[in-house]
Nucleic acid binder design. Structure first.
Length: 642
RNA sequence: GCCGGAUUAGCUCAGCGGUAGAGCAACGGUUUCGUAAACCGUAGGUCGCGGGUUCGAAUCCCGCAUCCGGCUCCA
């Protein structure tokens, strides 16, 4: 399980529901597009013949058209290019293509110059509805996604054509000599594209399938005006400033060092404080919600995971087994089988249920090197994992309890998470275990609770765990990439596989139901997202250094030290700065270290038993009695105020 | 893992075929000062690692490592 939160700087467009896409993941993307999108309301498509059905915002439309302009430029420069898909995406657009020339960033000016010509030519986008046969004929002549007939057929376009529903309307869009198989929608002509820029390159697999050919993907972005384009890049720069990897180094929170290993972060003292505070907060919630803490080891018999089904389901992302006296052990990839053993440690009666177990369980997974990312995607991480064993009758209430706990925690941070019901995709045979009835029962509980609470959500087909459906919560990083954080998973399967039982009021043996749940998901990931959410300016309860006391001259050191002693008694993390720097310099240092409260002690304060308070947020707050300050501070920490 | 890019002092970066540079930080000294930078000085780098080309490589070429952006994966 993995999760993200809403940390967007105001200037970056907020994430947006991807419900349409999620609901129909089987669709071959492109042909047209359908994706998420920034801004506002969809504009109606311009009327032209049989109007396209695609719904797009004006910005998406502009970007989709820019993707066609990119394709036009590319096919001018490299007529052999085979185009695949070119949709708008959250930050701009891309076009996937296959061509002999390897495009590099050095090619961008050349391509952009060619695009500028197309835009200057004011080429109209002309929509034409054609029969399947007409489209096939053009594809076979290499004419789709190109400017001329070619020796080689338009292979990807033909493939897409074959995937389009038999009764679908097939449309082409043409600008200049460039014709593309495309569902629409487009701006009226290329001159409507105000400002654009190619941004980066990557590769992609055709239709997103690893088994398909690898394509070159060119990304760009476009806006109606140069001003908006500039603002977009300025906002991106701003967003990068809150990158947890950058802040992690600047604020000495953590380090990922090759000498330890990729994806294996070491939390430095200041980062460790944040993690401890997060854990303490969760521990209080666990107590409130009636959980029993348990502890389990870092390795366990591979048989445990054979029984659960994790092995060999995920064998390729587990580390190799360790052999100890002829028995095989796994570096723990999941905590649940161990918690299951805790449940099975004694006979259970229905009177004992629900049993709720929780642990900060560290697990290790062989993540692909290209996926590693600071604290948010690592190879060893700690789940704030919990497992609830209950009767089927208790399931719904327990599920609600999990949801409430997640909401309480998210509210503490002001996180704005997105919620997704993750279901299995029945097409993917062999990816799941358990009976259809159990899957249906589990899904209905999730849907019922989500609907009762009117929780805004999307549906992710194929996102379920192999043993059951789940409700996942996503948060967003500084670049608006989504990460899974909290999750609640309903599982009828594992209790059966492990033959768990409880004695019912009827005296007969029954199988309990399990809920797997996590609030942070991965503590490391959550920390990374918290860092970005607050841009390193943590609320007092989380701040590694909560108060910095600074003196104007040496005269005030005794008073300042007495204050430090009091702070220590209150378990406030404070540091005394009594050096010979000017107060301006001391304040600047504290401000750069993002210390929430700065206390300035000069002769006047020492004399009157007061403190001159400066907050990171509001600046100089004037003087107040020492005791008032201490009371305010303690209260803010106790309530975990934002 | 795949495609592309990057890697120069603790940090941010300049240098791009001819003896390694700046600012900040660090360290030493001077300054006792009221809300975001006092002054002077010192030290600090086998230019990611390994090979190659060259009279000569931080600069060019080839491998590898790590990081960054995507892709794929994500119990």
């Amino acid at each position: 399980m993995h999760l993200r939160s809403d940390l967007n700087p105001p200037s970056v467009p907020p994430p947006h529901s991807t419900a349409r896409l999620d609901e129909r993941p089987g669709l071959p993307l492109c042909y047209a597009v359908l994706m998420s999108q920034p801004n506002s309301n969809p504009d109606p498509a311009p009327p032209s013949g049989e109007a396209p059905k695609v719904v797009m915002t004006s910005l998406e439309r502009l970007r989709h058209s820019t993707a066609h302009v990119l394709a036009t430029a590319v096919t001018t420069l490299w007529p052999d290019a085979q185009l695949a898909a070119g949709p708008p995406v959250e930050q701009g657009f891309y076009y996937d293509m296959q061509l002999a020339h390897r495009i590099t960033p050095e090619d961008f000016p050349k391509i952009e110059a060619e695009m500028a010509k197309v835009i200057a030519a004011k080429q109209p986008f002309v929509r034409k509805v054609v029969s399947r046969d007409e489209a096939m004929a053009l594809g076979n002549a290499g004419r789709l996604g190109s400017q001329t007939d070619r020796a080689e057929a338009s292979k990807f376009k033909l493939d897409i054509l074959n995937r389009i529903a038999p009764d679908a309307v097939i449309s082409l869009y043409q600008n200049g000599e460039f014709i593309d198989l495309c569902e629409g929608v487009h701006v009226s002509d290329t001159s409507k594209i105000g400002a654009f820029k190619l941004t980066h390159l990557s590769s992609s697999y055709y239709l997103g399938d690893e088994k398909n050919p690898q394509l070159q993907r060119v990304y760009g972005t476009a806006f109606a005006s140069k001003k908006q384009l500039d603002e977009h890049f300025a906002a991106l720069e701003e967003a990068k400033r809150r990158d947890h990897r950058k802040l992690g180094a600047e604020l000495h929170l953590f380090q990922v060092d090759a000498r330890v290993g990729s994806g294996l972060p070491v939390l430095l003292p200041k980062g460790a404080i944040i993690r401890r505070e997060l854990e303490r907060m969760i521990e209080e919630k666990l107590f409130d919600f009636g959980y029993h803490p348990v502890y389990s080891p870092h390795i366990g018999s591979v048989d445990l995971y054979r029984t659960s089904g994790h092995y060999p389901f995920y064998a390729e992302s587990m580390y190799d087994t360790l052999k100890i006296e002829e028995r095989e052990f796994l570096l723990k990839p999941m905590n649940c089988p161990m918690h299951i053993q805790a449940y099975a440690s004694e006979l259970r009666s229905y009177r004992d249920l629900p049993q709720r177990y929780a642990e900060f369980g560290t697990v290790y997974r062989k993540e692909q090197s290209g996926e590693l990312n600071g604290l948010v995607r690592v190879r060893g991480f700690t789940q704030d994992d919990g497992h609830i064993f209950c009767t089927p009758e208790q399931l719904e209430d327990e599920f609600r309890g999990c949801l409430r706990m997640i909401q309480e925690v998210m509210n503490l941070f002001g996180f704005n998470t997105k919620c997704r019901i993750s279901l299995r995709d029945k097409v993917k045979e062999g990816k799941y275990v358990g009976s259809d009835e159990d899957w249906a029962r589990a899904e209905s509980v999730i849907r019922k609770v989500v609907e009762d609470l009117k929780l805004e959500h999307t549906v992710g087909l194929g996102e379920a765990a192999f043993y059951g459906p789940k409700l996942d919560f996503m948060a967003y990083d500084c670049l608006n990439r989504s990460w899974q954080i909290a999750t609640i998973q309903v599982d009828f399967g594992l209790p059966q596989r492990f033959e768990l039982e409880y004695t019912g009021s009827d005296g007969a043996k029954h199988t309990p139901v399990m809920i797997h749940r996590a609030v942070f998901g991965s503590i490391e990931r959550f920390m990374g997202l918290v860092i970005e959410h607050f841009a390193g300016s943590f609320p007092v309860w989380l701040a590694p250094e909560q108060v910095r006391v600074m003196t104007i001259t040496e005269e005030q050191i005794p008073y300042a030290e007495a204050l430090m002693a009091e702070l220590k008694k209150l378990r406030v993390r404070a540091k005394l700065e009594s050096g010979r720097d000017k107060i301006g310099a001391k304040i600047r240092d504290a401000q750069l270290d993002k210390v929430p409260y700065m206390v300035v002690i000069g002769a006047k304060e020492a004399e009157a038993d007061k403190v001159a308070l400066r907050s990171r947020k509001a600046g100089d707050e004037g003087t107040l009695p020492r005791t008032d300050f201490l009371a305010r501070l303690a209260e803010e920490i106790r309530t975990r105020a934002l």
